[in-house]
Design a protein around this nucleic acid. Sequence first.
RNA 1: GGCGCCGUAGCCAAGUGGUAAGGCAGAGGUCUGCAAAACCUCCAUGCACCGGUUCGAAUCCGGUCGGCGCCUCCA
Length: 472
Amino acid sequence: MPMHLYDSLKRRLVPFEPLVPGHVGIYVCGPTVYSEPHVVHARGPVVFDVLRRWLERQGNTVRFVTNVTDVGHLTDDGDEGEDKLAKRAKLERLEPMEVAEKYFWTYFDTMRRLGVRRPSIVPRATGHITEQIALIEELIANGLAYEAGGSVYFDVSAWSAYGELSGRDPSELVEGTRVEVRSEKRDPRDFALWKRAEREHIMRWPSPWGEGFPGWHVECSVMSTKYLGDEFDIHGGGLDLVFPHHECELAQARGAGKPFARYWMHWNMLTLGGEKMSKSKGHVVDLAELLEQVDPMVVRFHLLRSHYRSLSDFADEALQASAAGLKRLRSAYASWPSHAGSGTPAEAWTTARERFAAAMDNDLNTPEAIAVLFDVARDANKARDAGDLGCAAAARSLFDDLLAGVLGIDLTGAREQDQALLGDVVQLLLEQRQLARKRRDFAAADAIRERLADLGVTVEDTPDGARWRRQD
RNA sequence: GGCGCCGUAGCCAAGUGGUAAGGCAGAGGUCUGCAAAACCUCCAUGCACCGGUUCGAAUCCGGUCGGCGCCUCCA
């Protein structure tokens, strides 16, 4: 039974088969690096990080490409408004590239805290201007784009498939009240591939049509196919990118003769008290602030506790429930022995592993996979209490494998805390022992030293007080 | 106006034709000097509502009500 994924283009669950067996190419639309990351930026990276880990575990080599937009993304709509980077640069009195650098690293540092591994390649729009110009020239040659006043537009009327991804009828798009009319465009539905740079525009490159800058959608068509091939496996993004961004990407790529993505995946929005989090409405949770209050792993765990195609609510109560649940899994894990003395061998959890795999293979159903782990926790605690340490140890390696390895939930953090705690606890015992020595209760003092020695902690009395170390 | 999604216990959240996962919170119990943790038991005769199809529906169809998203920048 192969993995099944929901394909947004086909609008149904389909078996996933990589174009080249054993190799998977994934392209995910990354952020426009012009401001601090919000929680909304975390869902896609976390979900795709898990997808990547799961595919690799099936023996695939995954090339994971996430772009970073650093030019061409305008504040208002596709064709008017200021460039987001340029606007921010003015505000902060920085070079646009400085703005991009700053938020680029903030973004990836934050993602790393959430356990998101670095992409294989992180292409930037400004680094692929020549490729974008080449694609635009090809579209013009194919009769799908035209130049007007130093700008180039995609001719939607010439591409009948336009609307296939978002399920829109191109002829009805005109009816939309908010499709603006701009004189140099032949049709209000047309979108910019290349924009003429006005005199004051600070981000500009030479092109066959004069100085200008690329439209927002072109970069993804170009960079995905450059690094993954004209046809590649998975293209991902937020649900709100389906239209117009992905629709336009698809039209541009196919219009240039590229088969493009074979599977489209879109994650759903985050809500706060039932309302969609929206950057433009200021209704968002700042990630840095949130991470001061909760363990990054709680955020990751909470995101995975709902299916990626469902809404996920970040209300405080919901987040706290995740924190409490994760705490239970971690403390259970910490209570299990790391190596089996005797008892049930590793195949004790075969069924659990199968259930976990079935959930993951079913369109990455992480909530169900997590439910399996809670079942394991309960059963392993029971085994532990019954003295079946082999079974508990096997559960521990299962957690290492699935909770840490596949879902990317860090369990060593708990281990480091345990290490710190060990020191404090030994110190406490030494204080009690010192009190015993003071009242000349040497039997008690010696008992403490011997019991610690049994546990592998050597105590040595020195003129400066007691010292301890682990015997390894 | 067009397209689409959703409505499952106090909260979060799976399940998409075979008789309601899991988590949090809550109640009772075992254990315990008392707690905590852990474990056990309980916690939706019902999945917004009304019809229909079916041997059988939370799941399919129709309608009603309610919430939301996209059609502008957003992940």
